[in-house]
């Protein structure tokens, strides 16, 4: 089967082309840009909501984008089990749309941060992380001002109980302490998945280090995991 990937473009998205480029570099497949005013995207196997500053992020990150026409379609497809990957602003939009629990708040030091971070893979038994090893430490960058993951105690407990925290900020030896979360995320959470296991949101940018030429390729395995899942046919 051929795998079809949509990258949603909101006004102010700025990692849309980057995802198309990395998806192609890793999988050899084309991805298509889809404007946020579209109402039907039923023909795609994977929906990527890219990073950027949708609608300027002026009110609250992702708060306006979730009202775009395309988001009710994303919610409908997510409900059917279609794979949805939200990166950075995409993660923020997914939490605003309540497709994922919690919220992303201002970084602990109140400053924008763009740099490589180390992440520990917490659960590789998912559509998005199967090509990583559990406990593997990977290096990919963050680039955000509002990436501190925050959720109520019940949501956090549920995430932990179901093994739905997929990535946590860590030290080089894989240990996790609050200092390792540059943005002050609760429990060092960098990425979480929904109960159904088909909607994944993360603050770091796997698409930015998916080619050795750019200084690292630890992001590749996320795209290869997704591709294998889709070719295996488990998503549809």
């Amino acid at each position: 089967m051929s795998v079809k990937c949509a990258v949603i473009v909101f006004p102010g998205s700025n990692c849309d082309q980057d995802n198309v480029r990395s998806w192609r570099a890793v999988t050899g497949l084309a991805a298509e840009l889809v404007w946020h005013k579209e109402r039907s995207i039923d023909n795609y196997d994977l929906i990527i909501i890219p990073g950027g500053f949708s609608f300027g992020d002026y009110l609250r990150t992702g708060a306006i984008a979730r009202f775009s026409p395309i988001m009710s379609e994303v919610a409908r497809l997510a409900g059917q089990g279609r794979l949805v990957l939200g990166i950075c602003n995409g993660f923020q939009i997914l939490t605003e749309a309540r497709l994922l629990p919690g919220a992303l708040i201002r970084n602990r030091n109140l400053k924008y941060l763009c740099r490589d971070v180390l992440l520990r893979v917490e659960n590789n038994n998912t559509a998005f992380t199967s090509d990583y090893r559990n406990g593997q430490v990977i290096r990919i960058p963050i680039s955000h001002g509002e990436g501190g993951y925050s959720a109520g105690p019940r949501d956090l407990q549920a995430l932990l109980d179901d093994d739905r925290v997929l990535l946590r900020y860590c030290a080089a030896d894989g240990s996790v302490s609050p200092d390792d979360a540059p943005n002050g995320s609760m429990l060092n959470i960098a990425g979480i998945i929904n109960k159904k296991g088909n909607v994944f949101g993360l603050m770091p940018h796997p698409e930015r280090l998916a080619e050795e030429e750019l200084g690292g390729a630890d992001g590749r395995a996320m795209f290869t995991s997704i591709l294998k899942t889709l070719i295996g046919g488990s998503a549809r």
Partner: peptide
């Protein structure tokens, strides 16, 4: 100068080979 350039997105666009 990392305090400065950490506050700038210096990677978006996927072209930055030497940061």
């Amino acid at each position: 100068r990392h305090w400065v350039y950490d506050q700038y997105d210096h990677m978006v666009g996927l072209n930055t080979v030497v940061r």
